[in-house]
């Protein structure tokens, strides 16, 4: 299997405070890799470090090129799409404008992609001329994912998409992610605090604690690990 992403000794933080203390992870083509970690472990920081939203040191190899020195908009152009924690939609723009700006890094025609996403999320089509700010949480998350995928990325970074969503909506969302993964071969790096559903769709799992990867393994190993079950699965 070919490797999409590999980080080596990835360090990042805010001001003088280092939050990530040398993270090494990798994502292979077609995988859904889940990173579990408690609140404040540095999951969001890791995602932001990969997509170039914050200054970082170390190596971020994407398709065998080091992108650790690139700024965020160039990382996007390379083929990484990042759905930030809290969705990060553009509330003042309409749903359709949100999708159009999602394709900003592309130079080709993307009208067909918009129709495709309306097919995947019919509710977005119903609301295409509404401002994104008026959507419900679940709709916003769908919009955020569709917008990210408008750039036709090779890797999708997804930061706690389940946050604030009803379990049913979360399940629906994860099913879409899984379907995209199996149908189009999209690689996904998914960060979650609430792990039950995430483990169901994961190919591989990392555990992040206070800025360091402390273990990795298959979803099954984690589901059967008592300590992990207590901390992240709530049962």
């Amino acid at each position: 299997m070919s490797e999409i992403l590999r980080t080596h000794d990835l360090r990042a933080g805010y001001g003088l405070i280092e939050v990530l203390h040398g993270v090494n992870i990798n994502v292979d083509a077609g995988e859904i890799v889940v990173v579990l970690g408690a609140n404040g472990a540095g999951k969001t920081t890791m995602m932001r470090a990969i997509s170039g939203m914050i200054p970082r040191t170390g190596v971020v190899d994407f398709l065998a090129d080091d992108i650790a020195h690139l700024s965020a908009h160039k990382v996007t152009a390379r083929g990484i799409a990042h759905v930030p924690q809290g969705r990060g939609t553009f509330p003042e723009l309409t749903v359709e404008e949100n999708l159009r700006i999602g394709a900003h890094s592309r130079r080709d025609s993307f009208a067909a992609d918009i129709d495709y996403w309306y097919g995947v999320f019919p509710r977005l089509q119903e609301r295409r001329l509404q401002r994104a700010g008026s959507l419900s949480g679940g709709e916003q998350q769908m919009l955020a994912i569709a917008r990210a995928l408008m750039s036709r990325p090779k890797l999708l970074l997804c930061d706690e998409p389940s946050l604030g969503l009803a379990p049913l909506v979360t399940r629906e969302l994860f099913e879409v992610l899984q379907r995209l993964n199996s149908e189009t071969g999209l690689s996904v790096l998914l960060v979650e605090q609430n792990a039950n559903l995430a483990l169901e769709i994961a190919s591989r799992v990392y555990l992040l604690e206070t800025g360091e990867i402390v273990s990795s393994g298959t979803p099954d190993e984690y589901m059967n690990n008592d300590a992990v079950r207590k901390s992240y699965l709530g049962h």
Binding site: S51, G52, M53, S71, A72, H73, T76, A77, A81, H82, P84, G88, T89, F90, P91, E92, L93, E97, R100, I101, G102, H104, S105, R147, A148, M150, S151
Partner: peptide, 22 residues
């Protein structure tokens, strides 16, 4: 396209960077 990018930056600058807006 550029106007949309300008509005996107006004609406949410971080997300604008994430969709590839300089």
């Amino acid at each position: 396209r550029f106007g949309l990018a300008m509005r996107a930056v006004a609406s949410n600058a971080d997300s604008a960077r994430l969709v590839g807006v300089n």
